[in-house]
Design a protein around this nucleic acid. Sequence first.
DNA 1: ATTATATTTTAGGCAAATCTAAAAATTTAA
DNA 2: TTAAATTTTTAGATTTGCCTAAAATATAAT
Lengths: 221, 221
Amino acid sequence: MKISISKENHLKAIFHLESDHGTVTTNELAAALHTRPASITDMLKKLQKEGLVLYERYKGFSLSQDGKMAAVQIIRNHRLWECFLVDHLDFDWSQVHEMAEELEHLTSRKLIDRLDFFLGFPRTDPHGDPIPDSDGKFTRQIAQIPLPNLLTGKEATVTAIRPQTDQILELLQHKKIKIGTRITIRKKFDFDDSLEIEVDGGASTTVSALVAKNIYVSVQK
Amino acid sequence: MKISISKENHLKAIFHLESDHGTVTTNELAAALHTRPASITDMLKKLQKEGLVLYERYKGFSLSQDGKMAAVQIIRNHRLWECFLVDHLDFDWSQVHEMAEELEHLTSRKLIDRLDFFLGFPRTDPHGDPIPDSDGKFTRQIAQIPLPNLLTGKEATVTAIRPQTDQILELLQHKKIKIGTRITIRKKFDFDDSLEIEVDGGASTTVSALVAKNIYVSVQK
DNA sequence: ATTATATTTTAGGCAAATCTAAAAATTTAA
DNA sequence: TTAAATTTTTAGATTTGCCTAAAATATAAT
C-alpha cells in the first residue's frame, strides 16, 4: 500500500501539469521529471495497475481519484514544510524548495498533522500557494490577479510571486516587496508597460513589465 | 559521493554495534538490519569500495574514519529530529523513533544545523543519548550509572532510560519519573533487589529491580 | 488521402539492493 | 587434531526504476 518516492513524484507532477494545462502528455511529464518518455510509459503502467492513474496506451492518461488524493497529500506536506523552514528555521523562500522536495515524502500522517497545528494551520505557503487541509480540501482562495491587471489607484496585497527565481527574489527584496506587501499602482507607462507603484503606503518605485507580470495581488482581504 | 539510505543505515548499525561490543559480525549486523547475512556481505563489499568500511573476507570488518563520520552525522540528525518532535510537536519519546528514522536521512547539512540552532543546541535527545555537534564531536557526557548502583541517600538526576519500551514508559509516567527527575534511594531490599526511592524530594515509591536496572542516573550536575 | 513528422510504446539492458541455496572458511569440541 | 557445527561468502534470481534504440501509432501537411 505504500507508494514509492518516485511514484509520488510522478503523481505530483501529473497533478501540477493537469492543473496547468488540463491535460498531460508523456513527453511533458518526462520533461517535468527529467526523465525519458519510455520511462514514463513504464511507470504509467505500474501506476495504472495500482489504480492511481487512468491510462490507455496511445490515448493519454489522468489521475484517478486515489491518485489525486495521494498527490494532494504530498503537496500539503511540501507546503507545510516550506512554512516551517521559512517561519521557524529562517530560510529564504527561494532556498526551501529542494529541502521540501525531500521532506514531502515522509510517511507519517500524524507528523504532518501535528506540524500543521504547530504552524497554526497556515493557508498558504511562503510562495503564496494554497495548502490543502488534512482531508485534502483546498479552502477557496481569494482571487489573485497579475499586477498589471490591477486598476490604477486601487490598493492590493501581494499574494504570490510566480515563477520564483533567485533573481526576481533579489530584485523584490531590494524593493522591499514580498507576500503581504500592500501595493498601489500610481502610473502605467504604455511605452514599455512599466509601472510606477507605491509600496506599503510609502515610497514609490518603478517595476518593469516583466517583473510586474510575475507579481500576483488580491484586492480583497 | 552521496550515500544511499540503505548504506547509511548499514553504517549507523555498524557504529552502534561497535560501540556496544567493540566488534561486529556479519550475523549480528544482519539481525540488526532485519536482513540476511548474504546481503550484508554484498553491501560490505560496496562500502569497502567506497572507503567507508575496512573489510577482509572471513576476517571481519569495521568502520573507516570516513564511515564513522558519516554514521555520526546520521545519529546527529536522528537525535536532533527527535528533540524537535518531542519538544515542539509534543510527541512522546516512545513514538518518535520511527519518524526520526526517516528524517535522519535528509541530505541538507544546512537544514540540520539550523534545526540545531532552533532547538537551542541540545546536548542530549529525549532518551538521554548524547547529540554530537556539527563537526561530529560528542562533548564529554557526565557519568551515568544504573540506578541500582547509586548509593543510598545520595541524590541523583535521571539521565536516560534504556532500553525504552512503551511499557516502561507507561510505568514511569505513572510514577512521575522522567529525564531530569531527581531521585534518592531510601532503602534497598535485598530480598528482591527492589528499591524504595524518593522522587523530586517528594513522595516515595518502590520500583522493582527490573525497572531500576533500566534507569540511568548521574550524581553530578 | 497519402506521406511526413512527432509522439508513444515495446524490447532488451543495466545497476542497486535484496533474496535463497549451496559452497567455502573458520571455530569449536570430542 | 580431525570431525562437527557455525559463520561467511559465492552464485544465481528477483524487483524497481531507469536507460537506448527501434517499432507502432497518431497527428499534421501537402
